[in-house]
């Protein structure tokens, strides 16, 4: 354990460099650069609002905020798990030549995605203020679902990174699973409508749905839903422990398979 920690300290600078690289290269040579981190969610929000409230003739003024809260969280989860899945294979060249702790690759891509996510929260704040969703004392509780989401993503990302070394199909399979998860997150519809039809259990078994619910509680000024909190926290911790376990068990075999 102590050796692990010392090793981490030694490669702390590499972790920073890798995160910096992701961020620097993502928008290099595009004219608007990092501004895209703000524009992309804003435009998707407009499209989704147009489709799901305009076409259905809903008149809730705060609906864009509702959509944005769900979408931002889901996009972070989706982007970073997808990147983590590929992380070991896309860094194969380095893994084969230089010794570096391998967990640094999935973790650095998740961290850089997390930074993009934090930046994109600016859009949420702006849209919420414009549409009259003002922060209450509950807004500080947004830290809880965000932390849960990060822990969950790290766990899932480590597992996916490991599996995809042995089965290339994982990348494509995970893309499909993500679509499924997206539709089960109540991003652009209200959970009431699903619960009414008797399919509420689909939301109930989806930890990401609970995270989003907790986040919405904080944004819309409601106290934290304790059931959602308990469920998502347990899930997050279990996946992280499992992810670390699986990764450590298999990491020495990576090089034989990439």
């Amino acid at each position: 354990m102590k050796r692990l920690f010392k090793n981490f300290l030694k490669y702390r600078y590499l972790l920073r460099e890798l995160i910096k690289k992701d961020i620097k290269l993502k928008y290099r040579r595009s004219y608007l650069g990092i501004l895209w981190t703000l524009l992309e969610p804003l435009f998707t929000m407009m499209v989704l609002t147009l489709v799901f409230s305009g076409f259905y003739g809903k008149s809730d003024k705060t609906f864009p905020v509702y959509i944005l809260t769900g979408r931002l969280l889901f996009t972070f989860f989706s982007n970073s798990t997808k990147a983590a899945t590929k992380s070991i294979r896309s860094n194969a060249g380095m893994i084969k030549k230089v010794y570096v702790p391998k967990y640094i690759y999935p973790i650095s891509t998740i961290c850089s995605n997390f930074i993009f996510f934090m930046i994109s929260l600016i859009v949420l704040v702006a849209v919420a203020l414009v549409l009259g969703v003002y922060p209450t004392k509950y807004v500080f509780l947004a830290v809880v679902p965000i932390l849960n989401l990060l822990v969950m993503t790290l766990g899932v990302g480590l597992m996916l990174a490991t599996f995809s070394v042995f089965f290339r199909d994982m990348e494509y399979l995970w893309g499909i699973v993500l679509t499924l998860i997206m539709y089960c997150c109540a991003i652009f519809y209200e959970p009431k409508r699903v619960i009414k039809t008797g399919f509420g259990w689909i939301l109930e078994i989806n930890p990401l749905y609970w995270v989003i619910e907790n986040f919405r509680d904080a944004v819309f000024g409601r106290p934290l839903d304790m059931r959602a909190f308990a469920f998502s926290t347990t899930f997050a911790c279990v996946t992280l422990v499992l992810g670390i376990f699986v990764f450590y068990k298999q990491q020495d075999k990576f090089i034989l398979n990439i």
């Binding site: 490669y11 600078y13 690289k21 380095m94 030549k97 570096v100």
Partner: peptide
């Protein structure tokens, strides 16, 4: 061993000095 294998193609030489150096544990 096989020099320059850890370079990122899109990065400039200067940026790669820091990246590769970090990888070697500097």
């Amino acid at each position: 061993l096989e020099l320059g294998a850890g370079f990122d193609k899109q990065y400039t030489g200067a940026e790669n000095i820091y990246l590769y150096g970090a990888m070697l544990g500097y």
